[in-house]
């Protein structure tokens, strides 16, 4: 950084301000100050460069990187959690759907079973009732038969008594029975 221009001997004394006020060059063009400024600039700028490149920029850069990484991590974590909650929601929904299907299946099955049971019960009941009905009909028929035969006996007796009363003749049994039978048949028809 050595300044190449020739300095007249003695100009070194000129850095005094008072001497500079008159008759000296415009300050930025005073060549005798150049070497001092260049040396100062060299020292200051090299120091600045070293501070900036070795300490300042790596530090600020690491702070920025750290923040970017933190934001990225947080964002990834949020994304992951959102995915998890989405999965949980999906699982919940499928579970719910399954449960609903199962409940419906159970309901249907139960209904069917109950239907079948009640059907069977109804059938046995009907059968029993039919048997009972048949029995009852049989009983009715028997009772009627006996009643009818009783009626025939009574009618025959009554007819014999009526004939005897009216004519004083004891009617022939056979002829009486035939007459009663035909009369009953006629009244039944």
């Amino acid at each position: 950084m050595a300044e190449g221009h020739g300095n007249a001997p003695g100009t070194t004394a000129h850095t005094e301000a008072d001497a500079a006020a008159h008759g000296r060059a415009f300050p930025p063009f005073q060549k005798d100050t150049f070497a001092s400024q260049l040396v100062s600039l060299l020292i200051a700028f090299v120091a600045l460069y070293l501070i900036v490149s070795k300490i300042a920029l790596p530090r600020v850069g690491s702070v920025l990187d750290e923040r970017a990484k933190r934001i990225e991590d947080d964002f990834a974590a949020a994304q992951r959690l959102k995915g998890e909650s989405d999965d949980a929601l999906k699982a919940y929904e499928t579970e719910l759907a399954q449960a609903r299907a199962r409940a419906q299946a159970i309901g249907a099955e139960t209904r069917e079973r109950l239907n079948a049971a009640s059907e069977a019960e109804r059938k046995t009941l009907e059968e029993k009732l039919a048997v009972k009905l048949a029995d009852a009909e049989k009983t009715i028929a028997a009772t009627r038969e006996t009643a009818m035969s009783n009626v025939r006996g009574i009618a025959a007796d009554a007819a014999a008594a009526i004939v005897q009363r009216l004519s004083g003749i004891v009617p022939d049994g056979k002829a009486l029975e035939t007459a009663v039978d035909s009369s009953l048949k006629g009244s039944q028809a």
Binding site: T15, A35, S36, Q37, A44, I51, V52, R59
Partner: peptide, 26 residues
């Protein structure tokens, strides 16, 4: 340096001030 006097000047002082301020900030 040779015949040339190297002085610490007001300019030098302000250069160091600038370096100090930048270091302080960063």
């Amino acid at each position: 340096i040779g015949n040339q006097e190297i002085a610490f000047t007001n300019s030098s002082a302000y250069m160091l001030v600038a370096v100090a301020l930048i270091s302080l900030l960063m």
